[in-house]
Amino acid sequence: MTKVRVYVTLKPSLLDSAGRTVAGALQKLGYEELEEARIGKLIELQVDPYSEARVKEMCDKLLANPVIEDYRVEVVA
């Protein structure tokens, strides 16, 4: 069994309204050094057997929307 982490993030050019709200809250808590916060998703998959191509397919077909998101796959163990 292989554990795979998929990190899904919004494309840098797009406004992350949730991230902006969180950044505002952190600034109000006194973290003036904070310039930006962006929120993404971490999806953990367990597959057996592991195929890089098939995990990529899962990302392209469902886990990430290429119109607004980028993704990165990390094999954990």
């Binding site: 797009l14 406004l15 309204s17 949730a18 709200t21 929307n65 119109v67 607004i68």
Partner: peptide, 16 residues
């Protein structure tokens, strides 16, 4: 949009 029958996407409202 998600099915690719229309272009673009719908994201969270600017003011959450």
């Amino acid at each position: 949009c998600e099915a690719g029958l229309l272009p673009g996407a719908l994201m969270a409202n600017a003011k959450q």
